[in-house]
Design a protein around this nucleic acid. Structure first.
Length: 419
DNA sequence: GATCCACAGGAAATAGTGGCTT
DNA sequence: AAGCCACTATTTCCTGTGGATC
């Protein structure tokens, strides 16, 4: 093969790009989260004695280290239990009654796609059961599911720790939490101890729980505040040391990446994403260093990516509502109140040749847009004669929205011919 | 301090999908 | 096949609400 390979593997920027992969890379050291680790430790410690741990409720926005810290703690927990059991085996095998080790089963479940208590219960049950005894996601009586679930847990003869990430997706039916949190007192469990950890990025979720559930689920609460720019810089330093070549970046680059993210959501994910993208840009342009300009460009890329992702998760009418809002924004008519936005929405529906939904339905879609953070709502009250109403505006750049709609299959008419 | 506006948003009903048990 | 069940997206109906104005 005389020709040169089309692959260019020379690296000026990254010594290990994977370190900047937010989803896959688990740092072995967590920084800026000592307080939370201590609180976790004290709540989980009883497990090492085979006792019931405190139920824990964890909350904080995305990218504040909830999931990373949780996995970090679970790894330590498994590690310590493992050591315990090998210590027992090493000692007197016959007399294991007194020093027996603890059986621990951790069930980690991300509830992102699960919208009801029922679905969570089925999912948990299937996680505990083997391949041959899986149950279907519909068609069973709820009580059967719960009974089977407790049967499985009780069979474990040890401690079962159920971790429910993104619990707020369950919605307002908290039966599963109620069942799990109170399993002990209702005598459903005789041989096992059950601990529940709920992780949520919605602060209000805790308030919406029924009082009984709140008391038992929130025995221990751990709050993950957003990172400030200084903390983000520290985090980036750690990552950059491993991910990048020393002379490929300077402190200024880390500072500005951190600053952009801190100003927006205070999310470590975002800061790391910006840095990685800046590195990719430098690589593509065959540069030896990451420049401030590239960081700025990377910030734009990350924001556009976020917007596309959010739009991708919307239902068709959610998209039409957003499209209407974007047109209004282009027309400099935002913030716009619901009633007027309805007109824009109707136009979008006409052009997409779909039926227009009621105002009530639009209100639900707009609430959804606010929830995911692509739009922001603002309640106003003009008093007697004016009344109470809401105003909406985009919470991201209009151009990012327009860009994202160009590659969307549900919206066929781009904004370019929207006027 | 009572009034009253323009909505917000809860509740129930409806319709359609799909899967269970017997 | 009949009679269950869960879930989603929607409509219709209606009660609740906060503060500028009277």
């Amino acid at each position: 093969m005389p020709n040169q390979s089309p692959f260019d593997t020379t690296q000026n920027i990254f010594q290990n790009r994977d370190v900047l992969d937010v989803d896959d890379y688990q740092p072995e050291q967590l920084i800026e989260r000592d307080e939370q680790i201590d609180e976790y430790a004290s709540a989980l410690e009883p497990i090492l004695n085979g006792w019931k741990p405190n139920n824990i409720f964890v909350y904080g926005k995305t990218g504040t280290g909830k999931t990373a810290t949780t996995h970090y703690m679970l790894n330590w927990l498994r590690h310590d239990i493992q050591e315990q059991s090998s210590a027992v085996e090493g000692s007197d095998k016959k007399d294991s009654n007194t020093t027996s080790s603890t059986n621990l089963e951790v069930v980690y479940l991300n509830c992102e796609a699960l919208t009801s208590s029922y679905q969570v219960a089925v999912e948990l049950l299937n996680d505990l059961r083997d391949e041959a005894h899986q149950v279907a996601t519909r068609g069973h009586a709820p009580n059967d599911i719960y009974n089977w679930l407790f049967e499985e847990i009780d069979n474990r003869n040890g401690v079962v720790l159920v971790v429910l990430d993104e619990v707020d997706h369950i919605g307002d039916d908290d039966t599963i939490l109620y069942q799990l949190a109170r399993a002990r007192s209702t005598n459903n469990l005789k041989n096992s101890n059950l601990g529940v950890m709920g992780i949520s990025n919605d602060f209000s979720f805790r308030e919406d729980l029924s009082p009984k559930v709140r008391d038992s689920l929130c025995e221990k609460e751990i709050l993950f505040p957003a990172y400030n720019a200084t903390e983000l810089t520290e985090i980036l330093k750690r990552r950059a040391e491993k991910a990048l070549y020393d002379d490929a970046y300077d402190l200024g680059v880390l500072n500005s990446s951190a600053a952009y993210a801190a100003k927006d959501k205070g999310s470590a994910r975002q800061a790391i994403d910006i840095l990685r993208n800046a590195g990719d840009l430098a690589q593509k342009k065959d540069l030896d260093t990451i420049t401030p300009d590239l960081v700025k460009e990377a910030k734009g890329i990350v924001e556009r990516g976020r917007v596309s992702e959010m739009i991708g998760g919307l239902s068709p009418h959610g998209k039409y509502a957003l499209h209407g809002l974007a047109i209004a924004s282009k027309n400099n008519e935002t913030p716009i109140r619901t009633k007027e936005l309805y007109d824009y929405y109707r136009i979008v529906c006409q052009r997409e040749q779909t039926d227009t939904l009621s105002v009530r339905a639009l209100r639900d879609h707009l609430a959804e847009l606010d929830l995911i953070g692509i739009a922001k709502e603002d309640q106003r009250n003009a008093g007697r004669g004016g009344g109470k109403y809401k105003q909406f505006d985009l919470d991201v750049k209009v151009d990012a929205v327009i860009e994202a709609f160009k590659s969307d299959t549900d919206v066929h008419h781009s904004m370019d011919n929207s006027f």
